[in-house]
């Protein structure tokens, strides 16, 4: 589904250049829930934002669903983005639109005829459990409900891939768990491939089947979740496992 090779991204800052991403090589298979974990500043956000080119890579190749994204012109990039959904830490819903109209937004952009938009929005709101709230405005919803709208909006146009940029970082643990359940659910039901970034072990543990560990712009470890959790090779992963140990005890109670 995704093949990244030789991806580099460097930022120029007041203190000189910083390598945000360094020679990234990564493969995500169709149907995966692929987690990328790292400390803040590791480059996770830059990496996931390269996958729909919200961030412009300096060099390398990113192939999503058989299409090379690097080098696409603006028009072709817009078309490619219509098949890549994305959800955000702060939801980024439009306050001027109802829940229904927020979810209809990507369909409007894709030029979907009106008579097809209504049924599709209803269907996807049903899936995320918000059918009763379609006439509400985002300000009337809780954080968890807002993220459900975000997920519905991201899935409305039948994407091949769903990108989750710290999607649960602004939510409490219980809401996080229910949003993760929903993501696992849509992965199963719709077969959509999910790539998520997080700094929380719990997120990886709960829904991912594969994980990559990012440290200072480099992937220091990757593989299946069992493999990486049971025999961590990188010091970053060992650090994560040590620090999340008490959470593990709590986590099993949820």
């Amino acid at each position: 589904m995704i093949t990244i090779s030789g991806l580099n991204k460097r930022y120029r800052t007041a203190h000189g250049p910083v390598d945000a991403l360094c020679n990234i090589e990564l493969t995500v298979d169709s149907g995966d829930i692929f987690g990328i974990i790292g400390l803040s500043g590791a480059g996770k956000s830059t990496l996931i934002r390269c996958l729909n080119r919200l961030e412009e890579p300096d060099s390398g190749s990113i192939v999503v669903a058989g299409r090379e994204l690097v080098g696409l012109d603006r028009g072709a990039l817009r078309e490619a983005r219509k098949k890549i959904g994305m959800i955000f830490q702060h939801f980024n819903l439009l306050d001027s639109r109802t829940v229904f109209d927020n979810v209809a937004f990507p369909l409007e952009l894709a030029g979907c005829p009106k008579r097809e938009i209504g049924p599709r929005v209803d269907e996807i709101l049903e899936l995320v459990g918000l059918h009763g709230r379609k006439q509400s405005y985002p300000s009337q919803l809780s954080g968890g409900q807002k993220q459900r709208v975000g997920i519905a909006r991201a899935l409305a146009n039948h994407p091949d891939l769903l990108l989750c940029d710290e999607a649960t970082s602004a939510l409490d643990p219980q809401t996080t768990a229910s949003i993760l359940d929903l993501l696992a659910d849509v992965n199963r039901k719709l077969g959509v491939t999910i790539v998520l970034i997080t700094h929380e072990m719990q997120v990886i543990r709960q829904i991912c089947n594969k994980v990559a560990v990012l440290d200072q712009g480099r992937i220091v470890e990757s593989g299946s979740v069992e493999q990486v959790f049971n025999a961590p090779r990188s010091s970053t992963m060992q650090l994560f496992l040590t620090h999340s140990a008490p959470q593990q005890v709590n986590g099993s109670g949820i």
Binding site: N92, L94, L109
Partner: peptide, 15 residues
């Protein structure tokens, strides 16, 4: 207008 809203629209392929 929050930049995040603009980015969300960009990510959906808006012109």
């Amino acid at each position: 207008v929050e930049w995040g809203k603009v980015e969300a629209a960009l990510a959906m392929g808006a012109s």
